[in-house]
Lab assay of single mutants.
Amino acid sequence: MAEQVALSRTQVCGILREELFQGDAFHQSDTHIFIIMGASGDLAKKKIYPTIWWLFRDGLLPENTFIVGYARSRLTVADIRKQSEPFFKATPEEKLKLEDFFARNSYVAGQYDDAASYQRLNSHMNALHLGSQANRLFYLALPPTVYEAVTKNIHESCMSQIGWNRIIVEKPFGRDLQSSDRLSNHISSLFREDQIYRIDHYLGKEMVQNLMVLRFANRIFGPIWNRDNIACVILTFKEPFGTEGRGGYFDEFGIIRDVMQNHLLQMLCLVAMEKPASTNSDDVRDEKVKVLKCISEVQANNVVLGQYVGNPDGEGEATKGYLDDPTVPRGSTTATFAAVVLYVENERWDGVPFILRCGKALNERKAEVRLQFHDVAGDIFHQQCKRNELVIRVQPNEAVYTKMMTKKPGMFFNPEESELDLTYGNRYKNVKLPDAYERLILDVFCGSQMHFVRSDELREAWRIFTPLLHQIELEKPKPIPYIYGSRGPTEADELMKRVGFQYEGTYKWVNP
């Protein structure tokens, strides 16, 4: 592979701008107003304001973009700056750019259920340069409990009458099928589907988006991507930290609602779906819905739930269990780990287990898709061969690698495990991989909904998990304890083995 010439960040961002501006969906010269509902909250200060700053800094926003914060707290732009700027990672050389960014910011205080507050917000936006005809993007960085009041008031008082209007809704989209349907029906009564952007930030990850290209742009994968060759698929999300004093919020939802029903299920769809007619948003989402419709409700015998306990040999936070978090209700049975087996009941995947695993306070930070292939028929190497695996590593250190057998150097035919490896950090030294939120917010500006969740996708996802969630809430089974920093409950490994996964433990990928 030829040595790549190092590029400056300015040059890299210039390439990104060229890609972005050559499309006809990006209205570079139009006025846009980006409204952050819930501007005083954690999500706004840690993710949304920093993301908008990065896009502005790199010249990736339309030229005439204004940012308006809205929340109940009586704040000023200076207050917003004070709480969000520490997350910007701005350099001293960017000081003038930073001043320009905050000059485009404003803030309006108001209630979430008060019509007069929204009329005041609308008047404020109209007073901005060309504000009355601007395109408006409303980001709901809010708890779902206020979605209905907020969307109703936005629709009645704050819509642009000339430009387009788009609304970005953060997960969780309800707690179960019934609450999700209620919320979807409410929002759909106010906005068209092409105006609604239900954001799952995992769909903005580079390697998640790469799944489609790997599958449908490489001839070698087509013939082997089926039940005849693939023994099982494992989708993993692991965090090495616990709730760390923020367990009160987590306890309301648990690990299945927080990660599995959305992030992991979306990745499953991209692995299992048929080739779409095109890369058009609805063509892709149509195929994802077909996959979900082929999955039956989760069966309790295919589920393992766990909850982390303190590690007596650990240090600091590792010595504390979930129930030691003062914000967690006493005696909570909320799971911090889950392993679930699903089956896609169609011709391509009949009988292939899709194993979804996620948890907190585990032994490493990792998100990946792992396809394990069947054993080689007619073994001539005296059971020395391990199964081939194709691994798409989402985070950290984005990579695609194939675990395969090669001859060990020497005189004899002794096979050993090795890999074919594409590590993004080595291959793409001159490429700026956008943060997931950067990519998705740019998608909203461009009107691309491919990486957002459609209402029928959402409904099918909740259909699969709601009976299990209701059973857990009714019966309150005690989750299996696992030690902070471990791989999780051993019962999860036993479940995976029972459905056909072979864990060798003899080879570990190392970032080159």
Score class of each variant (00 low, 15 high):
S8Y: 08
R9I: 09
Q11F: 11
V12E: 10
V12Q: 13
I15A: 06
I15V: 13
L16C: 09
L16Y: 12
R17N: 14
R17K: 13
E18L: 10
E19N: 14
L20E: 11
L20K: 08
L20A: 15
Q22H: 08
F26I: 09
F26E: 11
F26C: 01
F26G: 13
H27G: 10
T31P: 14
H32E: 08
H32D: 08
I33R: 01
F34W: 07
I35F: 05
I36T: 03
I36V: 11
I36G: 02
M37F: 13
S40F: 03
G41D: 02
K46N: 03
P50T: 07
P50R: 10
P50Q: 08
W54Q: 12
R57H: 05
D58G: 07
D58Y: 13
G59M: 07
L61E: 03
L61S: 00
E63I: 13
E63G: 13
T65C: 13
F66S: 08
F66M: 08
I67M: 07
G69M: 05
S73G: 07
S73L: 04
R74A: 15
L75I: 14
L75C: 10
T76M: 11
V77Y: 09
A78K: 13
A78R: 11
D79L: 07
R81Y: 07
Q83M: 12
Q83P: 05
Q83W: 11
P86M: 10
F87Q: 08
K89D: 14
A90C: 09
T91Y: 10
P92R: 11
E93Y: 12
E93L: 09
E93M: 11
E93Q: 14
L96P: 12
L98M: 11
E99Q: 15
D100Y: 11
F101E: 04
F102R: 07
A103M: 15
R104Y: 08
R104F: 07
N105G: 02
S106Q: 10
S106F: 14
Y107D: 02
Y107W: 09
Y107I: 07
Y107N: 03
V108F: 12
A109W: 12
Q111G: 10
Q111V: 15
Y112W: 07
A115G: 08
A116H: 14
A116N: 14
A116D: 15
S117H: 10
S117V: 09
Q119T: 15
Q119R: 15
R120G: 15
R120D: 15
R120S: 13
L121M: 11
N122G: 12
N122P: 00
N122A: 15
S123T: 14
H124C: 13
M125S: 08
N126W: 07
L128C: 08
H129Q: 14
L130N: 14
G131E: 11
S132H: 15
Q133V: 13
Q133A: 10
A134C: 13
R136H: 13
R136I: 08
F138V: 06
F138T: 05
A141M: 03
T145E: 00
T145D: 04
T145I: 07
V146T: 12
Y147I: 02
E148F: 09
A149D: 13
A149S: 15
V150I: 10
T151N: 09
T151R: 00
T151A: 12
K152I: 13
K152Q: 14
K152R: 15
N153S: 13
H155A: 13
H155D: 11
S157Q: 15
S157L: 11
C158P: 04
S160C: 13
W164S: 07
N165R: 08
R166W: 00
I167L: 12
I168D: 02
V169L: 08
E170A: 04
K171G: 02
K171N: 01
P172K: 05
P172E: 06
F173H: 05
F173A: 05
D176I: 04
D176Y: 01
L177A: 11
Q178P: 13
S179Y: 02
S180F: 05
D181W: 06
N185F: 11
I187W: 03
I187N: 02
S188T: 07
S188P: 06
R192I: 09
R192C: 11
E193L: 03
D194V: 09
Q195D: 09
Q195I: 05
I196G: 04
Y197E: 03
H201E: 08
H201C: 03
Y202S: 01
L203H: 00
L203G: 03
K205E: 05
K205V: 05
M207I: 07
M207K: 08
N210D: 11
L211Y: 04
L211R: 03
L211A: 01
L211G: 00
L211E: 01
L211V: 13
V213A: 13
V213E: 03
F216C: 00
N218R: 02
I220E: 02
I220L: 14
F221K: 01
P223Y: 08
P223M: 08
P223N: 15
I224W: 04
W225C: 02
W225V: 06
R227L: 07
I230W: 00
I230H: 04
C232D: 00
L235D: 00
L235G: 08
T236I: 05
F237M: 09
F237Y: 00
K238A: 06
P240A: 08
P240H: 11
F241K: 03
F241A: 05
G242T: 05
G242V: 03
T243C: 14
E244R: 09
G245R: 08
G245C: 11
R246C: 04
R246I: 01
Y249V: 02
F250P: 05
E252Y: 09
E252R: 11
F253I: 05
I255R: 01
I255S: 01
